[in-house]
Write a protein that binds this DNA or RNA. Structure first.
Length: 1055
RNA sequence: GGGCCAUUAGCUCAGUCGGUUAGAGCGCGCCUCUGAUAAGGGCGAGGUCCCUGGUUCGAAUCCAGGAUGGCCCA
């Protein structure tokens, strides 16, 4: 029974992954790991909940790969972990998809459908996609305690948020306020700041613009010229704004005297006008004018004035901006500053309210035609037409956004801001710029708008006593409290869940006046749902936190969290906010952020562009390990460029490793190598073995540091370098040790070394690419044929053994590799084939340690460069010849026609000495026509050439020359090697196995001379038991071989 | 207007502490090996390290200012 078995020549990563998934499941590997570490020190990770509303995308897979990497790494180090996955379950995300599925198209239709049924549909959708995402995550290789995932719709989550809101209320931070917000009239809700960012929030939209003239009071025939692309907002006009420092003009036209900005005059007035006066905007401030809809009851009290506003731009329109505080966020703010009235024209479905005369009941965006006609009838319209611009749309339903005055609930921020800022400073932000971004966000954050006028979400526990009673706000902090204050406590116990519509039926006895208080109908911002999880998932409320060793205290704060960078102002922010409110401390110690997933050209993935890649397609085509390698090798400061092209490159890199692995197993099986039978001590092994073990030790130390610092992309590059060292240096130089026939210590050292390197290296990379690592671990662990070895993740993390570290050896080997490269470059430039042995490599090496390195490993140089000897010289003179020429560009002007004599004088100097002087930056003295001239180094042109008969190259401070002269012996050896090569090809052509012994016939000129010297060598190399100088015998495989200038017939047969 | 990030070869990107001649992969050209390899290897061409100043014996790297691009806030 052999310890090892040769693997497939070329790996099928997808097949391996499927098999490993089965192995993990059958062997209960994850459960064993949890059990093994249960008494270990704790590593607390909190999973940012993934929205369970759609299948997982390739962008989620990036972050989920990181989450898995660090959890697996810490697990291999023996840390006990919770492995809890989370699902984000509530909010408009879900509602909109459910509406689409059900064919509902407005809030009214949802209410007709029934809020209870709607809530059930939402929950069903969440459960459906939670299952789907779970399956996909498992396929990605994520190890989580999947049966224990948290869901943000849970009653525990809701209650903890209630507690938070009550805490805020106790501090006086909860307020009800009006503000003008972006509003989707289809969804019937405002959009938060968070929802106005993103790639899909602006579309090209064509609006009707109008240019209007507002008659100025007490100045007959004079008008303000105003331009807008939202005619529906004119009914709420209360003011017009000018920039105080901008230049305006008073222009006479056939229709009257118009005021507008100077830069707009030409475009707006076209021709036929005359500028009477230029004036700064400040001079217009305070003017009163007649508004466009003064006849409406809603406008009755309004006095229209011109106000000053720094943000007026002259890029668009007339430089005079129409201000409607009820329909524009900036307008609303301006109204506050100037004490302007706020006229609110439309309701939640964007229909004009009572008091707007003929407009009342019309939908704002459908009324444009009517409005334009009306304005024209009033003599106010100057111009109208189409205007196409980028305009915000609802990211969910793509409906055009309007700005509308909304009554919302807020948490005031000013009190908590400094506390949050100092809590954020305690966090280890990776990269550090994430922390600066958080500080900037906190500096600028406005009050948190927490209410949403929707259905499937956290019910805000805000109970307001009726208007006819005391009007007091009561904020409930728990179900117990709700029961205590409820008009019907039994109804609280009967609630199937803490959601609308059921919760809406519970009413309170107002604690201050005893009248009935009703819950406000609003639900909460979904970032409340996600922000509370450091508390809700750890039963914070259920435990008595005042005494010691609670579950919450054990796991809080999180050691580590990671999400995309945009989560700084979303989840990281909401968690920080809620935790600072409850406990005045940051809920996480280290926070790691990364950028976005783009297509392989670096462009955003978009269904409509056709460049989006589904996770399922990606994993089916690339396999999970390849995807993970792509993600993890990307610098988190830049976008990952995800695609099948980059995937192929990664497969090739993994193939380099696979080839080494496959090489080891193939020969270990052939030779019956078993590491359990003992291998020579490291100190007894050849330098090459000690070198790769030192490299391995450095790798282990490097990897641990990278994982510990949550900064792993350099490790991916380092592993790739290591694979290259292993394959193209260690294994290539060691091949003969593996396939030689005698099983001596040297051979056992080679096997032992390669086995140790592979098994340890595989552990280092296991957190990154768990599947292929597990596969290799299984097959590199003897005994696998009888019983499955335990999972690699049940192994201990490798320790870097300092006794194996030999930095001197590593740097020596680096020198040797440079020298070999130098020799190859010299060969390449002279066209000398590698198979043709050459007599000598001459090296000019000024550094003592370089010379020592070559001397210590001279055999490697001889073999790799294929030369008979290496000679090291102190001076370059033997390799390079120098010639000194004048730098004509400088010396021409200086010496004029005498420059020829300068050249002569330089020729007569000792070129090597001058070259040395120039390289030291010294000047050179020559004598011309009896006068002494001093030449500066830059005035000389020192040229180096290889001396005759040497092919010369220089690099890394060294010079190397290869003797090109060939004598008969070298030629004969070259021929012999060519012949071996040709016979090997013939063996393969004949279809022989690698181990087949052969009988060989050679026929042609020069064959006897060749065999005189090289018969044994050839026989050994091609496994020939017999060689004859003869024509091929019957039944032999025959090939004709061109050797130098002759042709040889080769015949071979298998024994 | 404020904040964060980026800018290095044709393309995609490395480049720790400031240190000799700035690297890799892909692509391109030439060559080569094949007893691990649907492979591998070597060599070559290809660079104003965005610009301008400054600090320093020495700057892709640190500082200041600017340009361009991306993102966040207003």
């Amino acid at each position: 029974m052999t310890a090892f078995k040769a693997p497939a020549k070329t790996p099928d990563f997808k097949e391996i992954e499927a098999r490993i998934l089965d192995f993990w499941e059958d062997s209960r590997a994850f459960e064993s790991l949890v059990e093994k570490n249960s008494d270990g020190p704790r590593f607390s990770f909190i999973d940012g909940p993934i929205t369970a509303n759609n299948p997982m995308g390739v962008h989620h897979a990036w972050g989920r790969s990181y989450k898995d990497v660090f959890q697996r790494y810490k697990a291999m180090q023996g840390y006990s972990q919770r492995f809890q996955n989370g699902f984000d379950c509530q909010g408009l995300w879900v509602e909109v998809e459910v509406e689409r599925d059900l064919g509902l198209n407005s809030k009214r239709e949802i209410e007709e459908f029934g809020l209870d049924r709607f809530a059930r549909e939402c929950r069903d959708r969440v459960l459906r996609f939670a299952k789907r995402i779970t399956d996909q995550s498992i396929r990605l290789g994520m190890w989580m305690d999947w049966d224990n995932s948290y869901f943000t719709y849970s009653d525990e989550n809701i209650e903890h948020i209630w507690l938070f809101l009550k805490t805020c209320h106790e501090r006086g931070w909860i307020r009800r306020g009006g503000r003008v917000m972006p509003w989707c009239m289809r969804c019937g809700t405002s959009l938060s700041q968070h929802e106005l960012v993103g790639t899909d929030t602006y579309h090209e939209i064509t609006h009707t613009y109008v240019t209007l003239r507002f008659p100025i009071e007490n100045r007959p025939g004079e008008y303000l010229l105003v331009w807008t692309t939202t005619p529906w907002t004119l009914a709420g006009n209360v003011a017009s704004a000018v920039h105080p420092e901008l230049t305006y003009v008073k222009a006479r036209t056939p229709d009257g005297i118009y005021y507008l900005s100077k830069s707009a005059a030409e475009a707006v007035l076209e021709s036929g006008y005359e500028i009477i006066e230029e004036l700064p905007g400040a001079e217009l401030v305070g003017l009163r004018y007649r508004g466009p809809w003064d006849e409406l009851p809603a406008q009755a009290e309004v006095v229209h004035t011109v106000v000053s506003w720094e943000d007026v731009s002259e890029d668009e329109g007339t430089g005079i901006v129409h201000i409607a505080p009820g329909s524009g966020a900036e307008d609303f703010e301006l109204a506050g500053e100037h004490d302007l009235p706020v006229v609110i024209p439309i309701d939640g479905e964007a229909r004009y309210l009572e008091g707007f005369g003929p407009l009342t009941g019309r939908r704002a965006l459908d009324a444009t035609g009517f409005i334009v006609q009306n304005l024209e009838d009033k003599g106010m319209l100057v111009d109208t037409g189409d205007y196409t611009h980028r305009y915000p749309v609802c990211w969910r339903c793509k409906e055009e956004i309007v700005f509308n005055f909304v009554d919302e609930w807020f948490i005031a921020c000013d009190g908590i801001r400094p506390l949050m800022k100092s809590a954020a400073e305690t966090v280890n932000w990776v990269p550090q710029s994430a922390g600066k971004r958080m500080q900037d966000w906190l500096d600028n954050m406005g009050d948190w708008a927490i209410s949403r006028k929707r259905y499937w979400g956290l019910p805000l526990p805000f109970y307001v006593c009726g208007d006819d009673a005391c009007g007091k706000l009561t904020v409930i902090g728990s179900v117990d409290e709700l029961r205590e204050l409820a008009v019907d406590p039994a109804a609280v116990d009967a609630l199937p869940e803490l959601h609308r519509p059921w919760i809406d039926s519970v009413t309170l006895n107002c604690p201050s006046c005893g009248n009935t208080a009703h819950r406000v109908p609003d639900v909460g911002d979904c970032w409340l749902d996600a922000g509370i999880v450091p508390y809700s998932t750890l039963d914070y409320m259920r435990e008595d936190q005042s005494n010691g060793d609670t579950g919450w205290r054990n796991w809080f704060p999180a050691e580590f969290i990671t999400e995309m960078r945009e989560q700084i102002r979303l989840w990281f922010y909401s968690m920080l906010f809620m935790s600072v409110a409850l406990e005045d401390r940051a809920p996480y110690k280290s926070a790691f952020v990364y950028e976005k997933v783009m297509d392989e050209k670096g462009e955003a993935m978009h269904r409509s562009f056709g460049n989006a890649i589904d996770f399922d397609d990606a994993v089916k085509t690339l396999g999970a390990d390849v995807m993970r390698w792509m993600y993890l090798g990307t610098n988190p400061n830049s976008n990952v460029k995800f695609g099948f092209g980059p995937g192929k490159e990664i497969v090739r890199k993994l193939l380099t490793l696979w080839n080494v692995y496959s090489f080891f197993l193939t020969y270990a099986e052939l030779d019956g190598f078993d590491p359990r039978e003992g291998v020579p001590a490291v100190a007894e092994r050849p330098a090459l073995d000690r070198w790769i073990l030192s490299r391995l030790t450095s790798l282990v130390a490097f990897a641990s540091n990278r994982y510990d610092e949550y900064w792993i992309y350099p490790l991916v590059a380092e592993l790739e370098r290591f694979w290259d060292d292993l394959s193209n240096w260690y294994v290539r130089l060691s091949r003969r040790r593996f396939w030689k026939s005698q099983a001596d210590d040297d051979k056992r050292a080679a096997y032992g070394t390669l086995h140790e390197v592979l098994t340890t290296m595989v552990k280092v990379m296991a957190p990154l690419v768990p599947f292929v690592s597990e596969e290799m671990h299984q097959n590199l662990t003897p005994g696998v044929n009888s019983d499955a070895a335990p999972s690699i993740f049940l192994e201990d993390w490798p320790a870097a053994d300092p006794s194996l570290l030999d930095e001197g050896l590593e740097s020596q080997m680096a020198v040797v590799r440079s020298v070999v490269g130098l020799g190859r470059a010299a060969r390449s430039s002279s066209g000398a084939k590698v198979r043709q042995p050459l007599s000598e490599l001459v090296l000019g090496m000024p550094k003592q340690e370089d010379r020592a390195a070559v001397q210590a490993h001279v055999q490697i140089v001889l073999d790799e460069v294929n030369v008979k000897s290496v000679r090291i010289v102190e001076s370059d003179d033997e390799i390079l010849s120098h010639s000194i020429k004048p730098n004509y560009r400088l010396l021409g002007p200086r010496f004029g026609r005498r420059v020829g004599k300068v050249a002569q004088a330089l020729d007569n100097l000792n070129a090597a000495a001058v070259a040395a002087a120039v390289s030291r930056g010294e000047s050179v003295t020559i004598s011309i026509d009896g006068s002494t001239e001093t030449l500066e180094p830059q005035e000389l042109d020192v040229r180096h050439e290889g001396v005759e008969g040497l092919a010369v190259e220089a690099r890394a401070g060294m010079v190397g020359g290869i003797a090109l002269a060939l004598d008969d012996d070298l030629l004969l050896e070259g021929k012999a090697r060519d012949l071996v090569h040709a016979i090997q090809n013939a063996r393969r052509g004949a279809g022989f196995e690698v181990s087949d012994r052969i009988r060989l016939h050679l026929d042609g000129p020069g064959v006897p001379e060749l065999l005189d010297v090289y018969a044994d060598h050839i026989a050994t190399e091609v496994l020939a038991v017999e060689i004859q100088t003869a024509a091929p015998a019957g039944g032999m495989h025959v090939e004709s071989v061109a050797l130098a200038d002759t042709a040889i017939t080769v015949g071979l047969s298998r024994l």
